[in-house]
Design a protein around this nucleic acid. Sequence first.
RNA 1: GCCGCGGUAGUAUAGCCCGGUCAAGUAUGCGGGCCUUUCGAGCCCGUGACCCGGGUUCAAAUCCCGGCCGCGGCACCA
Length: 528
Amino acid sequence: MNRLTLEEQKRLLEERYSWVLEKAKKRQVEEKRLPPLPGGEEGKVVTRFAPNPDFVIHLGNARPAILSHEYARMYKGRFILRFEDTDPRTKRPLAEAYSLIKEDLRWLGIRWDEEYIQSLRMPIYYDIARRLIERGGAYVDDRPVEEFRRYRDEGRLEEYPPRRRSIEENLELWDKMLEGHFGEGEAVLRVKTDPRHPDPSVRDWVAFRIIDTGRSPHPLVGDRYTVWPTYNFAAAVDDHLLGVTHILRAKEHMQNTVKQSFLYKHMGWKYPHVIHFGRLKLEGFVMSKSALKKLLEEGIFLGIDDPRFGTIAGLRRRGIDPEAIRRVILDVGVKGTDASISYANLAAVNRSIVDPKARRFMVVFEPVELVVRGVPEARRLTIPFHPENRSLGERSIEVPKGEARFYISGRDAAALREGGIVRLVEAFNVKVERVSPRRVEAVFHSWGLEEARKAKAPIIHWVPAGQVVEVTVYKPEGLKLRILHGLGERALADARRGEIVQFLREGFYRIDAVSREQGEVVAIHAHD
RNA sequence: GCCGCGGUAGUAUAGCCCGGUCAAGUAUGCGGGCCUUUCGAGCCCGUGACCCGGGUUCAAAUCCCGGCCGCGGCACCA
């Protein structure tokens, strides 16, 4: 084929294999692209990912992160990372979470152009609050909540006395709030909205409340502040100040968009474009932060990155390639409906990414001894780590002359019949003589693959006795973790921690721990 | 209950804005075959969906109305 000229090759390709071309063309066209952003202009798009650092992120959080990042890149714009940590009381930030989240994002291939932490921007929020009051867009409410609710729910919010205060009075009370004249729960700053808005929660929502940081200190700023902006205030202000043009967020924020737009109106700002998408669920995985926290407290889990968790760290530890996560999220896209991804689907995508680069190793579970007599000569078998990708290298295994001992998997041993021929993959063929539960006896038959084919012999994997490493495998099954023990070939002791490998005929695994001295390996099952 | 959003095969998604080319595309799953020194990969064939009911129209997955179902919100959380 390569002796033909390029022209001849082309012609041949077109005549006889045009479908290959069409397929290739098709694939290019179908390479998943995100739909264009409304009002998206090249070089001018600014997006952000704004996690609460109260825990690590999971697959659901990764969606806005990846989509926002992807859009910023697509339009050659800016991507901002912003930590929203303005509730030291009920959603207390976790000091480690800031860096854990960044680690997860980097692993996902996300790079941010700017980084902000809201708890470090408090003076900015205070300043905007003052300007908002000066514009008559907010008032201090120092009455008990019940009273506010009564007015609100009776549709008489216009008559609510604090709402009717003068700007001067509000400025004074605001200063008092900042000076610490009020305790927790004694005063809030409310944004004036449509007092008759159909959604009561929109009516005069809270922009700032008082949190006793003496009792619940903030991990970054301790008790320096007691007047804290709510999510809606801080996020809205920052989106404007940082020049965010497009907000991509889950639909639980829909009402927040409505609330925040009142603030924008008061300030004369233009609200960014917003895209709301549905929730993303990974079937069979625990996703909710609170549920995860609870499980962790109960023990019995390997940590925040337990492979049974839908956290990014958990998926990483399980052997999922970041590219697989990216593809799945891009495939799910920006639809408003909830999506439920099956692990089979994620696994299929992952397999296609990992398969070309995963080294193959032989590991047998429930090992059964196989004794082969009559090996005609000693041989040093050189076996590549990957059937197609030779750049992954090879290892050699010695087979002695005469009697050779191996281990094969219990499952394969159980399927053997006396008198049958079986091929030890990449080695030779044997004829089975005796099968007992713990031991199989066989006699050398032939070296060649052809003979095995002719005899329709099954091809099984094996491990040479005396040259093994102990393999412990964790196999996540829902919330259970099955533990399997096996024997692996010696070369496995050289695997790198974190490497994703294939155990021949047993599926893909991530190497979780290696102890070369002890000859022990721990691996986590990713998928078949 | 109130406010809002949405419903395409088992799952996910394309198409819906700008009705016909859609007896609906793709991926994954599932069934079968080929290939292969793996039960992996690759290749081929098959399977299977427009929530329901009305309306508009020559023509509706696409537009309109109603119903049903799902989801989100209704915090001094994010």
